[in-house]
Design a protein around this nucleic acid. Structure first.
Lengths: 341, 341
DNA sequence: CGATTGCTTGTAATCGATTACAAAAATAAT
DNA sequence: ATTATTTTTGTAATCGATTACAAGCAATCG
């Protein structure tokens, strides 16, 4: 670190070739003769040469990094997607920067500045709630072809996106409860304005309609994906005249909060009320009772998003501009049973 | 993005000064006259100039980034520390790179290469299990003064470290159980070789000795911080001739798995056995029963580690604390009660 | 045999900001 | 008024890799 850096110049001198040849030997070996190639290789190991990324980035006008926008780093759900993304990029030249959009100290920095400052070459956003002005800036500076949404997405633009089939998940959940014999099914939603909330609620309403299930507005309870919102919903349900026999929750966290709350109200799960979650977080299996839920392939989702971004950054000509929807599965456990007659 | 970049040259021309003055106006404004400063400021907004990080980094021989090593990104415990780290660095010039040490694809790359390739200026490791060869390489290339451990640390070296007072946590847990009247207290450890496992076990043994509690080897059960290891430990406990009346778990996840497993065995928490966790993860409050646990200040820990690294890198006036130990608190909930006589 | 093509190589400009050095201007001191 | 000192400024070298351009050389072709 301290000793003066070894540069291509040094390698060139030792190898008895020019710097251009060294550089070519590194980036595109077939452009160089066999002799030169081995000479360079030897010189590199003799000198202990290491390529300087900053110099390359400056010359090539790139950053060598991508930014991952996470709504909440403290949420295990997102961090597993991050794991998938990380796995893909670790095999490339790109480093990954991580930024938490819930962090107010990051909020003052315009996202597009990351691009303009040449700090990143691409962006994966797990946050669908980017402001319209931010999104317009992306287009205005024409960096919109280097952005991918993962998990969540913005309904305001048609950027490429990788997501789970949320509507399908909702349908699987409702169908499962229906098959068990439930007819009075409640739903605890996610936060208003969130695309996942919308997709899951729509999917549920469609399934409900198709099965001719009664729809009681009281049974659609506003939540926000959090443990606490589930806990609060339990009180609401406990106070209902016409109680549902099953509840489909927009997330596992809500479901766990709900179960905790229902117990507090003296209502047993699954005996009195069946509960279905969404996500299949790790802990779902160890709840009491173990949670029936909709399983998302989070790591796969991250991987797919990363691959998509790499494709876009590589082949700028053919932009697939697609929406990739990953299937979800019903994971049956013990929080759902047939209703007592 | 596409249009030719605006450089200091352009700003200099518009402002009617030299590039040196522009650069100085940006990095050290008091080195420049008031007139020049405003002229530069105006020229910058007139031209829409943005500083090119790659060029600066090249010239200043730095990377403008720090690497955060996380043992497992999918674990919410670590990601909250990350949140604290992120909050600090977002106010600086540094970007944060994140790498998952459990990811095999990252394993082939020597960590010290990140430094040698000038991709990072500093490193925060949440993983205490770095190999001795890796640690020696750090010293050999004298980058060891730009490394900080957070949460975990390596007993093989004396790099600066920010950690929770794990022994204190263990003592608080044992004392709490003792005060409730428990005398037969079991412990489910973390994975062997882990420093946190060691600290928590030692702290527990010390507290136990001080209180003159019986120590039955059977009551020290090997775990690995995971839900499943807690679940398995339940079976072990159920099969004991002399059952403990309380269990202190090395992590909340273990505790939750344990409670789930005990229920499966027909053993009730807290009526038959009291349980204490460690970490106070968000869900601990919503378990059934809500979990008594040792609360760590994870975000604070991340912040402290970040501040420490900044101090070491010289970017900030700093405290030279080599080892910073953060206090932990007992969080009493309903998983612990007095034992039935 | 001269001309054309293809492969390999080297020279030198380039990416954009920083800074050593020296000169110029402004201020203080004698 | 002159010298010494400080402040402000500009010129040009520098960081290290990439690549446009041109040239050298051998092989192929008519």
């Amino acid at each position: 670190m301290d000793r003066k850096a070894v540069t291509v110049q040094d390698v060139a001198r030792v190898a008895g070739v020019s710097t251009a040849t060294v550089s070519r030997a590194l980036s595109d070996p077939n452009k160089v003769s066999e002799d030169a190639r081995t000479a360079v290789r030897n010189a590199i190991s003799a000198t202990g040469y290491r390529l300087n990324k900053a110099a390359r980035n400056l010359r090539k006008q790139q950053a060598g990094a991508v930014l991952i926008l996470v709504p909440n780093l403290g949420n295990p759900f997102f961090s597993q997607i991050l794991q998938g993304i990380s796995a893909v990029f670790s095999e490339t030249e790109f480093s990954i920067l991580v930024s938490d959009t819930s962090d107010p100290s990051e909020r003052d920095l315009n996202l597009v500045d990351y691009f303009l400052d040449r700090r990143i070459d691409g962006l994966i956003s797990l946050d669908g709630a980017l402001s319209i002005s931010e999104l317009e800036l992306f287009k205005h500076h024409s960096v919109d072809d280097r952005i991918v949404f993962a998990c969540e997405w913005s309904p305001l633009v048609d950027f490429p996106s990788v997501r789970s089939n949320n509507a399908m998940g909702a349908k699987l959940a409702i169908q499962h409860l229906y098959d068990l014999g439930h007819r009075k099914i409640a739903h605890i939603t996610g936060p208003e304005g969130n695309v996942l909330t919308r997709e899951r609620r729509e999917g549920m309403l469609q399934a409900r309609q198709k099965l001719n299930l009664p729809t009681c507005v009281e049974w659609i309870i506003r939540g926000d994906f959090s443990l606490n919102s589930g806990f609060l919903a339990a009180q609401e349900i406990a106070g209902m005249d016409d109680r549902p026999t099953a509840v489909f929750c927009a997330s596992d966290m809500v479901a766990i909060g709900l179960i905790s709350g229902l117990k507090r109200e003296g209502i047993s799960v699954p005996n009195d009320i069946s509960v279905v979650g969404f996500d299949d977080i790790e802990i779902a299996e160890f709840c009491d009772p173990p949670l029936t839920t909709i399983k998302q392939n989070r790591v796969g989702l991250g991987r797919a998003a990363a691959e998509q971004l790499l494709a876009q950054m590589g082949a700028r000509a053919g932009k697939p501009d697609r929406i990739l929807q990953l299937d979800v599965q019903l994971q049956t456990r013990e929080s759902t049973v047939a209703p007592v007659p």
